[in-house]
Computed example of a mutant assay.
Amino acid sequence: MGYGSGPYPSQGGMPQYPNQPPYPPQYHAQTPQQPRKNNAGLWIVIAGGVVIVVLVIAVIVVLFNRGGNDRAPVADTPQTTEQTEDTGQTDAPDDDTGDDTGGNTGPSGGPPYSPPEDPCSVLSEGTLEEFGASSSRKNITDNSATCSWSTEVDGLYGTLTVEYSTPYGGSDSVEAAKDDYAFNYDYATDEEGSIFDLEVIEEQELNYGSESVLIFASEEIISPGNRTTVLIRQDNINISVEWSVSNFNSNEPPQSFDDVEEIMKKAAEEALNSL
């Protein structure tokens, strides 16, 4: 067996059948062809990076060429206009003869102004004695300086306050100081908006600084009282001198306008001259 031809298997081989081809050759799988690398994306990234670098360099060059050339005219032009306008108003007290101020009223320096370092020293000893002032208290912030005294005149107790303030948005801004002055005026005269029973009795425009006014009012908080306020704006700074007096022994306000006019103008004049 295994040595003859025919349909029987031969030694060491596979069965052979008539009319059949030899055992087919072994199938060899073909390795799939690797896709060709495409470098287009890499070139796009490189080109984009170059464009960004060029743009950054161009922006830096433009900013460098503009720096220092536009800033000076923008800052100088409005300041010159504002100072010229306010300086003309500041000179007005030289011609004032109707308010019994006793001479020229105005600061010795020039704008822009800053609050004094010691607001409790702006009033003279003689003026403080007329108010019966004692026990001063001061408060200093970045844009304001305030001093308050307890007062006693003819058995009537009160509080005297002097405050200097520059605008929050820019300490040298004249326009912002004008807005602050208008706000302070509204607060001192707004009878309907006041949370207390406020009545403006006398209002008098003054010639101190760039603009100023004296307001005498009655105000009832716990008991009947009076509140006298002098508001002054000198260029970029606002000054407020306020005297509040209460009467705990009567149902009537304790003061008249004649009682406060002269002393309040004197205190306001000294506060302005202390700039």
Rank of each mutant, 00 (worst) to 15 (best):
S114D: 05
L55R: 03
L63W: 06
V74M: 14
V59N: 09
D70Y: 11
D95G: 10
D94F: 12
V51A: 15
L42H: 14
G103R: 10
T77N: 07
V54A: 14
P111S: 08
P22Y: 06
G48C: 13
V51N: 01
K37G: 03
I44M: 07
G103W: 09
G103F: 13
L55Q: 07
Y113A: 09
T87Q: 08
N19A: 11
E85P: 00
G110L: 13
Q26Y: 08
D100E: 15
V45P: 01
V61H: 02
F64S: 12
V62S: 00
V53I: 15
G68S: 02
Q20F: 03
P107G: 06
N69R: 10
F64G: 12
E85R: 15
V53C: 15
P35F: 04
A58F: 08
T31Y: 05
A58H: 01
Y27R: 14
T81N: 09
Q79A: 12
H28V: 14
P22G: 08
H28W: 06
P111A: 12
P78F: 02
E82C: 00
Y17G: 10
D70W: 11
Q79D: 01
A72V: 05
P73R: 04
G109C: 03
K37Y: 15
P24I: 02
Q89R: 12
Q16K: 11
N69K: 14
L63Y: 04
G102W: 10
L63S: 06
Y27S: 09
N65H: 05
G67V: 03
Q30D: 00
W43N: 07
P112R: 06
P22I: 06
A92D: 10
P15T: 09
A72N: 11
E85V: 14
D94W: 07
G106M: 05
Q79S: 09
T101H: 03
Q30N: 04
Q89T: 00
D100G: 05
I52R: 02
G48R: 04
N39T: 11
A29Y: 00
A72I: 04
N38Y: 01
R71Q: 12
V59D: 08
D100W: 02
I44T: 12
P22D: 10
P93D: 11
I60P: 00
E82Q: 06
Q34V: 09
Y23Q: 12
P25T: 04
Y17D: 07
D95I: 08
D100N: 15
G110P: 01
T105S: 11
Q89F: 06
T80R: 15
R66M: 14
V62R: 08
A72E: 10
P107Q: 13
V74Q: 15
G49H: 05
Q33V: 13
G106T: 06
N65D: 04
H28K: 15
L55K: 03
Q89M: 07
T31F: 04
A58L: 13
